[in-house]
Amino acid sequence: MKKTLLSLALVGLFSASANASQVYLDVGADFGGNSNTAAGDNTTGWIDEIQFQYVSNSVIVDEDGSFDAIDPTTFISAGDTITTTGGFIDGDLSSVASNGITSFIPDSVFGGPSDNGLGTKAWGLTFQLNNLIGSFVDEDTIAYNSGSIDVYYWESTMTATTDFIEVLTLDVIGGGQDLTGSLVNTRVSSFGTDQINGVDAGDVFNTEFGSFEDYINSGLDIAIYGILDFNGSNAEFGGLGLKGGKTTIEASADHDGSLEFSVPEPTSMAILGLGLLGLAGAARRKNA
């Protein structure tokens, strides 16, 4: 594991400070097309944003009793609650085709960074959504507040989903409405214990200051913000039921979205910490 983060004495005080940051992925192997990498042929280039797609399965509860049982698309109203699962299906290798990372921004096709074989589907990242629970802000926007997302690495040579390697887990900590869709806020909570082509799972995602695992081991939070298209496409409704005397309906759809990363900058935080220590010293001298 890389040890490039500065040692921070005031880590707890500044753990909430965060700025948007570029990242790169180190997958431990050169899959080709690497003309513009971040840290060698085994890495991607510097990434501003990650785009993804997935298939969801949800149970929606009609909290206000507004459903008229005629048109299921009119079921949803503000305040209705939802529990969502989704992502690749255990045992179904083909399900990664519609559940996972699709591209990076900037796009390597138009002069952006290398994707180190992601575009040729030599490898990829897929995920599973585990009981994301939230409520509708309006009929198109969901505010999830709990649940988790497990992220896995796969290669085209793998023959079963059991071969996938866990990279990290994201805990959902909140969400709401964004200009382009539903905002989901997550926090990195743990890493896989295996290696990916000789790279520790916690060292796959990196900023200029160190790997995500370096951050976590230093007591810093890594926030990952996702914009999700909850309108989706190919939406299907069915499976009416009851829960606590309220009508429920099952729903599934295809979705897409994007992820941005917000991580603390250790150098800025250390400088700020020294400044605060100086202010504290000045205050003590003044009061003496």
Rank of each mutant, 00 (worst) to 15 (best):
A69N: 14
I60K: 00
T159K: 11
S35W: 01
T157M: 07
D256N: 15
R187Q: 08
G124L: 05
L5Y: 05
T247A: 13
T180R: 10
A78E: 12
T193W: 09
I165L: 11
L10M: 06
D107P: 00
G33N: 09
S95R: 04
S182P: 00
D64F: 15
A143H: 03
G175H: 08
A223T: 05
I222K: 01
A20E: 14
Y153H: 13
T193K: 09
I173M: 09
T248H: 06
T247S: 14
V11E: 03
E166F: 08
G111Y: 01
S189T: 15
L6N: 07
W154K: 03
W123K: 05
Q51F: 03
T141R: 02
N34M: 02
S103Y: 00
W123N: 07
L240V: 07
A18T: 07
G28Y: 00
G32I: 04
D254Y: 09
S146F: 12
A251H: 09
F205I: 13
G45L: 06
D64R: 14
D229F: 00
V23H: 04
D64Y: 15
G111C: 04
L25H: 04
S189L: 05
S17I: 11
D71I: 14
G176Q: 06
T248L: 09
G112W: 10
K3S: 13
D92A: 14
G45R: 05
F52E: 06
D48H: 02
F31V: 03
G32V: 00
V96Y: 03
K121G: 12
F212A: 00
S77H: 12
A9F: 02
F14H: 04
A283S: 09
G245E: 09
I196R: 06
S189D: 08
S189G: 03
I227Q: 11
I70L: 15
S148E: 11
K3W: 02
G192T: 12
E236M: 13
G278P: 06
L240M: 14
H255A: 11
S148R: 11
N116M: 02
A122S: 15
A29L: 08
T84W: 00
G147T: 03
T162L: 04
D90Q: 15
T84D: 01
A18Q: 08
I70A: 15
K246P: 10
I89H: 07
G273C: 02
M158A: 07
K2C: 06
F110I: 13
S94G: 14
L274F: 04
T141E: 00
A283K: 08
D214F: 06
V109R: 13
K286R: 14
H255R: 12
G124H: 04
F205T: 09
K121W: 09
V199T: 02
H255K: 10
E155N: 07
S156F: 12
S35G: 15
G12N: 07
T120Y: 04
